[in-house]
Simulated scan of single mutants.
Amino acid sequence: MSPEAARHAGGGLQAALGGKPYVLANIGDDADVAFVSRDVTGLSTKHAVLPHTQRFHDALRSAPSLKWVHAHSSGADRPVYGDLIARGVAVTTSSGANAGVVVQTALAGVLMLARCFPQLLAAQRNRSWAPLVGSGLPRDLAGQTAVIVGWGPIGRGMASLLAALGLHVVAVRSTDGAAEPPASETVSYERIGEVLPRADWLVLCCPLTERTRGLIDAAALARLPAGVRLVNVARGEVAEEPPLIDALRRGALAGAYLDVFAHEPLPAESPLWDMPNVIVTPHTAGHSDGNEMRVAAIFLDNLRRWTEGQPLLNRV
């Protein structure tokens, strides 16, 4: 956290603990609890860990008394978290802190693709008057089907907005079961192939796990009907990139909004940068000036639970 956020967090923590003494400090030789804030990870990615981030991760791994680690991110797919969980350390995330922001961004991606904004913006750059009535009218969103992969705060938020726009929503989540409105049906990750042939939109907002890694592979893409558009605000590894690029090149996929990639930053030589039917953003779908305090609030709530012996929220 920033110094200002830390001051706010400290005051909230002191009140939460009834004025009892507390310590918020960098990890030294040992610690019971650690908070991996944005100050630790900075702008680093899973493939380009900054030196100070690596030092912090190493300190986590070597702290013998460590019992609980909280991450500022909504996911816990960095290798350090798996290592900690394997030795019995509780790991919690800030899932939900930026969900509303991600939902807004993902919806913007859907609307831009649905309303042909990539083509319209290209025409603007070329000073070309190119009304859609002359180049193929876009389809009405109402009546289309959105397959939403992941049923956490982001997936449910997207489902509510898309249903309000008149789309039929299918939820793909970790378990089978009765449909949870606004989804009209639900299948597990392993059964995604059953619903892909009916998709007009494939929206990826699931965590990266062994069950979701490579979930959208060449075989899954082949089951999609022509003209589908894809939105990925999950993790790049959920959709295998080579067959995805191939499907976009061939027109099997009509377009994509991609905020996450297998390798970040996205290499300059990636063909995704220049594809006329692709919107690329730099893993920024969840960035907002209100996130820091929402993350701090989740951490403080869990810290209160920790001191009172209650179950931790968002435990991985």
Rank of each mutant, 00 (worst) to 15 (best):
R223Y: 00
G227D: 02
T186I: 11
S128R: 15
G136S: 10
A218N: 05
A122I: 05
V187G: 10
R156Q: 14
V149E: 03
Y189D: 02
L224S: 00
E190T: 14
L165G: 07
T93D: 00
P225N: 03
A146P: 08
A122H: 11
E185K: 06
A163C: 11
C116I: 01
R213G: 07
V203N: 04
C116D: 15
L202D: 08
V110Q: 14
I148W: 02
A123E: 05
V101P: 09
A199G: 07
G193N: 00
L121E: 14
V102Y: 09
S135M: 11
R173Y: 01
G227R: 03
S94M: 04
G155H: 02
A179T: 09
G152F: 01
E180M: 10
A97D: 05
G136L: 12
G100A: 09
L113Q: 09
R139T: 11
G136K: 13
C206P: 09
A179G: 11
L141C: 08
A218K: 11
E185S: 14
M158I: 12
L224A: 01
T212E: 13
A99H: 04
G214V: 05
H168F: 08
G193T: 05
L221W: 03
S94Y: 07
L196D: 04
M112Y: 06
G96K: 03
G152N: 02
G136R: 12
S188D: 13
T92S: 15
D200A: 12
A122K: 08
T209M: 06
R173S: 15
A220M: 08
D140Q: 13
T145Y: 03
P118L: 03
S128E: 15
V231S: 07
L121D: 13
L208C: 07
T175L: 10
A108S: 14
G150L: 10
V172S: 01
N98I: 02
L204F: 04
G157I: 08
G96F: 01
V187P: 06
G150C: 08
P118I: 03
E190H: 15
A97L: 03
R139I: 06
P138H: 06
S174E: 14
R213H: 13
V169T: 14
G157W: 02
V149K: 06
E185C: 10
G100T: 10
P131Q: 02
L204P: 05
G214S: 03
A179V: 10
D140Y: 11
V110W: 10
R223V: 05
A220P: 08
P153K: 15
L162F: 09
A178M: 04
L121P: 04
T92M: 11
R115V: 04
G109F: 11
L215F: 01
W151G: 12
R115G: 09
L161W: 08
M158R: 06
D176H: 14
A114E: 09
W151S: 12
A218R: 15
T105E: 03
L202N: 05
R223S: 04
G152V: 00
L121Y: 14
R125W: 12
A90F: 07
A199R: 05
L224V: 00
S188V: 11
D176E: 15
W151A: 13
Q144S: 10
V195P: 07
G109A: 06
C116M: 13
L111F: 08
L132H: 00
L161H: 13
T105H: 07
P138Q: 09
P207M: 01
T186V: 13
E190Q: 15
A159D: 04
R229N: 09
L111K: 04
G136A: 14
Q124Y: 11
